[in-house]
């Protein structure tokens, strides 16, 4: 199980990194092509689609590394027990939001499958929409692991 999770994290980082590099190359190529009066509209289209996925994958990476910004003004001054309690409440609220995002996101991707991506016939916008429920699922796993940690090591931040 732990091995599987490590592979999942690694895959997440590799995919996110590859998407970001692809975005750079696509947007650069698009700019050069337009300069040469041979505009390639699809480069921007693919880049923005990749961006949605990269954005939510990176959000999970940041969340796992405690890289999401928080205000610790109050919590830092509370006794350890109270602060751990507050952390659990926070994580439960976050988990509830992520469950909502998975369900609503999946529903939206399904009902809006007729919407085309950038008006390109045959390419559904659902490919973009799906990035959020997928990202929310990964964020939910991270959140639940953080919740488990608050029980295992009560003094951990």
């Amino acid at each position: 199980m732990a091995a599987f999770y490590r592979i999942l994290c690694r895959a997440e980082a590799v995919i996110a990194g590859a998407f970001l590099l692809a975005m750079v190359v696509l947007i650069f190529t698009g700019g050069v092509a337009r300069m040469l009066a041979m505009p390639l509209n699809w480069t921007t289209d693919i880049a923005t689609c990749l961006f949605a996925w990269a954005c939510f994958l990176c959000a999970d990476i940041a969340w796992r590394n405690n890289g999401l910004m928080a205000i610790e003004l109050v919590t830092a001054r509370l006794p350890a027990a109270a602060s751990a309690m507050l952390a659990r409440v926070n994580l439960l609220l976050i988990a509830a939001f992520l469950v909502y995002a998975i369900i609503a996101g999946a529903e939206l991707a399904w009902v809006s499958r007729a919407r085309t991506f950038q008006g390109i016939p045959g390419v559904s916008y659902s490919w973009v929409t799906a990035s959020m429920p997928a990202g929310a699922a990964l964020l939910l796993i991270t959140t639940l692991l953080k919740l488990r940690d608050t029980f295992r090591a009560p003094r951990a931040a």
Binding site: A13, L20, A54, C58, A59, I61, A62, G67, M69
Partner: peptide, 17 residues
């Protein structure tokens, strides 16, 4: 350089989104 960008982009873009 690439790996360092991942966490930065995640925290900034998720918030803006």
């Amino acid at each position: 350089a690439l790996e360092g960008s991942l966490s930065d982009i995640g925290s900034v873009m998720f918030l803006i989104a």
